[in-house]
Structures are given as C-alpha cells and as structure tokens.
Design a protein around this nucleic acid. Structure first.
Length: 271
DNA sequence: AGCCAGGACAAGT
DNA sequence: ACTTGTCATGGC
C-alpha cells in the first residue's frame, strides 16, 4: 500500500501536539519522530507539524473531507485569541499554550468518551477507551481499531463490558448506545438546532449530566458557546472569576474554557 | 496507604 | 432549590 502525503501551510495559531493532547480527545499518540498518530472515523492518520506546515499521511481529498473540519482548520483563532487578550488571565493562558484549537470529533465517540471521563483521570480514560475499541471496534490496520458504533454496543450486556474495567460507567455506555442507535437521541437534530436543544436531548441519557453534555456539544458538535465545568474549571471560576466570566469570551466560552483548563491543569494558579 | 480523578444520581434537608 | 453519600477503578 502506498503511503500518500499531503502538505499544507498552517494558519498562525496552531499547535497540533497540544490540541490533540489537552483533554479533548483521548486516542492520539505521539510517535518517536514527533508526529501524531490517531484515528478519525475509519481512517488512520499520521500528522506532523513542521516548519509552518502540516504534513498528513493522506490525500488532499481526505484532508479537505475529514481533517479540515476535524482540526477546525479554517477558523481565525488569531483573531479570537486577540479578543480574549482583554482578560488578563486568558491573555496569559493563550500566550503560554498558544495554538490550541477546538476539535470537531464524531458525536458518538465524543459522547461515549466523556461518559467514560466522569469522576476519572485522563490516563485511565484513555485505557478504557482503548479497550473499548480493541474489544468492539473494527481493526483498520494492524493494532488500530475504529471506535465502535452505537449499533454495535446497544445489544451488549453489562457483563460483556467487564473487559473495559469501566466500573459504574458501563451501564451508562449501554444506555447511551441504546438511545442513540434507536434515534431517541437524534444527532442530526442536535447538530441543526440551537445549543439548548442539544442540552435537553443529551441529558435524557442516564449518566449524562450537564458537564458531559457540554463536552459533547463542544467537542462533538462544534458548539463553541458550550462551557464544560469540571473540577478544574470550577476552581478557576471560583478563584479568578468570582463575579462572573469576562464579556470577551461571549459565544466562544468553550474555547476560552479549553485554554484555562489546560493552563490550570499544568500547574498555573494566579500568575 | 490513601486521596483524587474533565460527574451523575438519589436521597435527604 | 441546595447539600451529601455513593458509585468502580486505577494512577500517583
């Protein structure tokens, strides 16, 4: 099989390694040569950021059809970061961790991943997801498995998921698979509706509360006004923004949240 | 060894 | 409408 390559110039605010490993997605791995290897849908991609270019192990058509959207390639993050700089903490966070973009992952994978994330830590989340894919996904290439569809999971029983070691979350995964596969939670509707509709739909799933719903809407549906509040972001809000979030993030609350989350999680408090 | 983790839920005020 | 105990499991 021939290894295709496609190169493209990068926009200004773009850090591939950071955006793929800052708690949005859980399946990308950094290779020895610095490239990132991961799976989107039923394709394995190897991506390398080098000298202002992105080098992709795929064709131009696949980049335009899959990665351009996944990486939020065409949004002007430079302008966005500039708007955020009106706030002093965001100014620091965006400078220190410049180049984070909000990924647009597949909705089902996003939903399922953040159900698994609840009351859990990132290394453990990655392990559970990896075992989920190995156990129930399709092997695309040697050692690379797709994320199993809701239809694949919906008829499984709790015992079948024991291999995941996902604890109390197993029953939540099954309820989500059932409601999504049966259309009781309608992804097309969520995508084409205002965010409030998505919130109402997603929390119909057992084990999906406000936080998981916001994460799904942000990372899976591109609703950048979604604002997930996990323990870290709650600390940020209570310590730095006791009187409310800054006006400058309006409409892009989730983007600001991602910078602050990563900043705080990497040991920064007040600076 | 014990505490915590990108929470949600049910039961109790 | 707010607070609290509980839920599995693993990482550190």
């Amino acid at each position: 099989m021939k290894e295709e390559k496609f190169e493209i110039d990068l926009p200004e605010v773009f850090n591939l390694g950071l955006m793929l490993d800052c708690g949005q997605a859980f399946r990308w791995k950094k290779e020895a040569d610095g490239s990132m290897r991961g799976i989107v849908g039923d394709r394995v991609f190897s991506l390398l950021q080098k000298d202002g270019k992105l080098i992709c192990s795929c064709s131009r058509e696949e980049f335009n059809g899959v990665l351009r959207r996944y990486l939020d390639f065409d949004r002007d993050y430079k302008a966005l970061v500039n708007i955020f700089s009106a706030d002093k903490y965001l100014k620091k966070a965006t400078r220190e961790f410049s180049g984070i973009r909000i990924l647009r992952q597949q909705p089902w994978e996003t939903l399922c991943s953040f159900i698994i994330s609840q009351n859990n830590n990132i290394p453990s989340i990655k392990g559970i997801i990896e075992r989920l894919c190995q156990s129930f996904g399709e092997e695309i290439e040697e050692g690379c498995f797709s994320f199993p569809e809701a239809e694949r999971l919906k008829n499984l029983k709790i015992e079948d998921l024991a291999v995941l070691r996902s604890g109390f979350r197993a029953k939540y995964i099954l309820d989500a698979a059932e409601k999504v596969a049966d259309g009781e939670v309608d992804f097309d509707k969520i995508e084409s509706s205002p965010i409030e509709t998505g919130r109402e739909e997603l929390i119909k799933i057992k084990g999906v509360g406000k936080k998981v719903a916001e994460c799904t809407l942000l990372y899976g549906f591109g609703k950048l006004e979604a604002f997930p509040e996990d323990v870290w972001v709650k600390r940020i809000v209570s310590e730095m923004y006791p009187d409310g979030l800054p006006e400058c993030i309006k409409g892009y609350d989730g983007v600001a949240q991602q910078y602050l989350f990563h900043w705080r999680r990497n040991g920064k408090e007040f600076g």
